[in-house]
Design a protein around this nucleic acid. Structure first.
Length: 420
RNA sequence: CGGGGUGUGGCGCAGUUGGUAGCGCGCCGCGUUCGGGACGCGGAGGCCAGCGGUUCAAGUCCGCUCACCCCGACCA
């Protein structure tokens, strides 16, 4: 893609009133557009990042044997009344509206009820189980106050996975496999070294749920981390009993701020029973299906990556998340330099390297600044002094030093770095 | 939902005791530049958030509404 043709442009100005670093950078770099508080549109660069994240997550979900589907945003009141979660006093984040005939509908903030209601039609026998399905769906939540940029939005993209199992043992095995898959996802998106499995409140259903918390000073949650064991406890559930159960010594825990990037939850058979989702076991007896729910906030994840990995000059994307692999620029407006850069652009494209080519005739400073702001993994510079020896200057985004390489060498280095 | 703040060209802002709106960035044209957000000259662009008052006269004073931001509560 040529930068001159890319929608949209970068900006020097920090958006006023936007205090969250993730949103400031993503807006300035042209990845997102803020429509209103907590409501952000994805522009081409941001959408590409989201699609890359979805690709990483999708691969892991499929490897668990889960199947992708897509539920609806409009949801029926009657279903949510069965679990007593329609009432605004019980769930405060509902957006609600009415059909022309007066019937009330809700906008999806979660899909546990809706999807379990649907499952009643497809689960009759133990032979129909287990079933694991997931989706990438927009969630709408009427937060009383949006904040933290795209980390806490009113409208956001979530990957939600639901597991339907026969027994607690079958459920637990799947639950554990999801835990491992989630850790692999956070590893792949560059947050592995700072994201930890965290014990959190299990609500009415189990003692614990598990969160995946990414450590960052701008975090909203407080966790207590045991670095050696790589597990943490959410402040909300920390007490002596919990410490004993998890065999942790309070003195060995670090108190840290973190953002929840994933959450996994066991519902047992309670919700299934409320919604009438039963199956017949081998002995012919009706039993409620064991339900698990597993979420990753995809757009939030983009925000957390931006927030955690950025430096003073702009965004920093891991190679398999970045909207392209290399940011190609030329310095000076000499025809031979421009031709050399354009030739290299075509060579990179032919070699399947994802390249963003800054073909604008502007000052070098602007190009360097934009390259740093957008944050692709590599910057490739063409100038009079590099082409003298038919070489180009290659610089990783996070490393200060540059090195001169030939076109063949560039392609060799970059061809393996593409996002999935 | 409590407390505080802000709404003026696309963006960021200034606007004095009320007298008919200006600056920077960006944008358009021409020229000079070209390794870290260059410079000169010439342009375009505004019902001053909305509604209603006071006044000969309102961006400015008063009232209401809306939107946005910050702190807190909430985040199933």
């Amino acid at each position: 893609m040529k930068l001159s043709e890319l929608f949209t442009k970068t900006s020097k100005d920090i958006p006023v009133g936007e205090t969250a670093k993730n949103a400031q950078l993503l807006i300035r770099a042209g990845f997102i557009f803020k429509d209103s508080a907590g409501v952000y549109a994805l522009l081409p660069l941001g959408l590409t990042v989201v699609e890359n994240l979805k690709g990483i997550i999708r691969k892991e979900m499929n490897s668990l044997g889960a199947q992708e589907l897509l539920m609806t945003t409009l949801q029926r009141k009657e279903i949510w009344e069965q679990t007593d979660r329609w009432d605004d006093n019980n769930v405060s984040c509902w957006f609600k509206s009415k059909l022309k005939n007066g019937a009330e509908v809700g906008m999806a903030w979660s899909h546990e009820e809706q999807i379990t209601n649907m499952m009643r039609l497809f689960i009759a026998s133990y032979r129909d189980l287990p079933v694991n399905v997931y989706q990438f769906q927009t969630k709408l939540r009427n937060e009383t106050r949006a904040r933290s940029g795209i980390i806490r939005a009113r409208e956001f993209l979530m990957k939600d996975l639901y597991s339907y199992s026969r027994t607690e043992a079958e459920h637990q095995a799947f639950y554990d496999s999801v835990t491992a898959a989630y850790l692999r996802v956070f590893d792949q998106v560059g947050l592995g070294d700072r994201t930890f499995l965290t014990f959190a409140s299990g609500g009415d259903f189990t003692q614990f749920s598990h969160e995946f918390q990414t450590i960052t000073p701008s975090g909203e949650d407080t966790i207590y981390l045991h670095r050696g064991k790589k597990i943490a406890i959410n402040e909300d559930v920390l007490d002596d009993d919990v410490l004993k159960k998890l065999e942790l010594d309070r003195a060995e825990l670090e108190k840290l701020l973190a953002v929840e990037v994933g959450n996994i939850f066991s519902f047992g058979g309670v919700k299934s029973a409320q919604l009438g989702c039963y199956y017949s076991d081998e002995d012919g007896k009706q039993k409620p299906v064991i339900l698990g729910s597993y979420g990753i906030g995809v757009t939030r994840l983009m925000g957390v990556i931006a927030e955690c990995l950025a430096d003073g000059n702009g965004l920093v994307w891991p190679a398999n998340v970045a909207p392209a692999t290399v940011h190609l620029i030329f310095v000076g407006n000499d025809d031979t330099v421009i031709k050399a850069a354009t030739d290299l652009y075509h060579q990179l494209q032919a070699a399947n390297v994802k390249v963003l080519y800054d073909d604008r005739v502007i000052t070098a400073g602007e190009k360097f600044a934009d390259a740093d702001l957008i944050g692709l993994p590599y910057r490739l510079t063409v100038s009079q002094r590099t082409i003298e020896n038919e070489q180009f200057e290659l610089k990783p985004r996070t490393i200060k030093d540059t090195k001169l390489v030939t076109a063949d060498e560039v392609i060799k280095i970059l061809a393996t770095k593409n996002a999935n």
